[in-house]
Write a protein that binds this DNA or RNA. Structure first.
Lengths: 289, 289
DNA sequence: AGGTAAAATGACTAGTGAGTCAAGAAGCTC
DNA sequence: GAGCTTCTTGACTCACTAGTCATTTTACCT
């Protein structure tokens, strides 16, 4: 399980630097210090490897922002900015993954990867939508696509700047900056000075994605369940062991088709601990409906 | 010369759809209806082909916007919007080229292509800079990088939307939309309500590009010379012939190392026509310093 | 029609890289 | 340490493609 991670990291590094097509499985194997055959015992194909990379890193970068969104203590504006900040911090942490992501070049139109990108975009948009509505209420709806589109483009381009420039941008400042720009643009729309260009019809490819990922209230509940488990674990004696188990559950759950039996087994390990039982059951309900 | 163009178009189509690495020279040849050997008599290598594609299309899409910038009749705000509009029109016209461009995946770090992209980015930024200063004067300087960066990202992302969505966005509306958004953001900076994040130091990679492409006044002069020639040609009887000659000059001049003798010869053909002589000489001064 | 120059062809070479698998190494059990 | 299983290896196959070049086809001229 450790070597698997080492492979993912080496692959991200190489692919981020040279691109998918110009990185051979041999080079990845060499970089980890194992043989090609061994590599293929972890990942049945190059495509599977890249899919696993996305599965592994996507959440790592983005999910933390969603969790911050649930903190509830901060006022909406601050929370929105904090979420961007956390996301940018994640981006700095996983620079080479982001580099790889931004190259965008992958295997020849993999069904799986496409739907993953789709899901991811949908998630980003539904997150933005929620924040916009929290900030401005339903009256922002007619302008939401334009705002979301511009926000997404500004966000993405600053991400690009961040990972290419050695000169590090401060995530906190950047978070506030972006939210400030959104506010200006939103106010202009609300004042009726700009007309929206985009509508539901035109943005259907993106809203489909938003439905597909599941109503995002359910996503929110899942996040809460995760959070509850992690927080309770921190209060326990053998924190390390339970963290390991929970991380393993998390990993399994992120797979495109998680093994239900493995999940049940792992969750059982959590439920064994009396103090964790309630949280574990809640999590189980979210993960195995 | 016609077949060369056919190859470029077929290649753009295929590469735009499937990517550079997943498009073989054989497929391009088949698509044009010629043999691979023939293909290689036009382009000595795959890399040369892709470079030629960029050389062929880049100006086609962007230079028209620069020319509009010289029209002088429109007030700054309108002109800026019109320039975006013209650019978006170009993008619609050369959709598959833009698709190819946006994929960004090319031969393994070609020296030539990289410097071309660099030049292109620099040109975009210097164009934006000029327009911002025309609109707001020198007082916009401290905020120019943030504005340019956000503008560029919004512009690029709408471009992406345009080429992927069948549902066509109206270039005119889009042009006005973008300029309006720039205005809002600029006014917020000027009112001192937002602080800039980016500075010359951080953006050096981009400003270097701006210097390299040549002081942009000289670029402007060249554009003017072109325009004068084209306009005079429209008043002539055998318009068609002179257009062909001028287009050939334009083509040659866009090559990375234009053949000076060919240029002189072609320009001579223009100078033969008494009414065109002045314009042709001005153009020659710009093209062959 | 015959002859020559130019253009087009596609079989061929050489290199690369994904994926396989028989053989060997390492670990484990009694 | 013998006998077993599991992991690891790297040489090998197979498919693909950039680029070449001897041969054929076409075009043009007399």
């Amino acid at each position: 399980m450790d070597k698997r991670k080492a492979i993912l990291e080496a692959a991200v590094e190489l692919i981020g630097a040279k691109g998918y097509t110009h990185t051979s499985m041999q080079q990845i194997a060499d970089s980890v210090g194992i043989s090609k055959g061994s590599l293929y015992s972890f990942f049945p194909s190059k495509e599977d490897l890249i899919i696993s990379i996305y599965e592994h890193y996507q959440q790592l970068v983005f999910e933390r922002a969603f969790v911050v969104g649930l903190d509830g203590n901060l006022p909406p504006y601050e929370r929105f900015a904090k979420q961007f900040q956390v996301q940018f911090e994640g981006i700095l942490e996983y620079k080479s993954y982001m580099k790889m992501q931004m190259r965008g070049e992958t295997a020849q139109s993999s069904e799986k990867l496409e739907s993953m990108g789709h899901r991811m975009r949908g998630r980003l948009f539904s997150w933005l939508e929620r924040n916009l509505i929290e900030l401005y209420g339903e009256k922002i709806s007619p302008y939401k696509w334009d705002l979301m589109w511009m926000t997404q483009s500004i966000y993405t381009s600053y991400t690009g700047l961040m990972i290419s420039s050695e000169n590090e941008l401060d995530p906190k400042k950047l978070g506030h900056h972006i939210v400030r720009q959104i506010e200006i643009l939103a106010n202009d729309f609300l004042a009726g000075k700009s007309k929206p260009l985009l509508d539901d019809d035109m943005m259907r490819p993106f809203s489909v994605g938003m439905d597909r990922e599941g109503a995002f209230t359910s996503f929110e509940k899942r996040e809460k369940a995760w959070k509850a488990v992690y927080e309770k674990i921190h209060t326990l004696d053998n924190e390390h062991y339970f963290l390991e188990v929970t991380n393993r559950i998390s990993e399994e759950s992120r797979k495109s088709k998680p093994d239900e039996l493995v999940m049940r087994g792992l969750l059982h390990l959590l439920k064994e601990e009396e103090t964790l039982r309630v949280e574990a059951i809640t999590l189980e309900e979210q993960l195995l409906p």
